[in-house]
Amino acid sequence: MAEVKEDFDPYILGICCNWCTYAGADQAGTSRMQRPANLRILRVMCGGRMEPLMVIQALKNGADGVLVSHCHVGDCHYVEGNLKTFRKMPLFLKMLEQFGVNPKRVKYTQVSASEGAELTEIVKEFVKELKEIGPNPLRMEE
């Protein structure tokens, strides 16, 4: 399991809020911070819009990893939308484990609009971790 598969190119779907993490990813781009080409970002307005089912659906569809990220606690553009997800996630990750899914396939972070560098590090780290975990067996082949 711990063996790193170098030729495996993990697919990561990010579900990120418009005001912080999406903006932080924009900032990373504007600053030309280089990261491995593994992250696609689906934009929602608030971290509170994230439903666990969205993550499950992405994993079912074969995503190797899902990154859920929103504003830091206290910074939410909608005051406390992110807190709802903040409370949901620990339970959800526990549930995933009980379902037999490696909870490490889901990364949950808080990245602000000025933290492009942090996001870059998070993606690098996540790619490394996913390479250790290996491909999602549910990914379809052509």
């Binding site: 969205m54 659906q57 569809n61 995503a63 990914r139 379809m140 082949e141």
Partner: peptide, 11 residues
């Protein structure tokens, strides 16, 4: 979006 996001693995 989620349902089309992940392309099948090309052989």
């Amino acid at each position: 979006m989620i349902n089309t996001a992940i392309p099948p693995l090309a052989k």
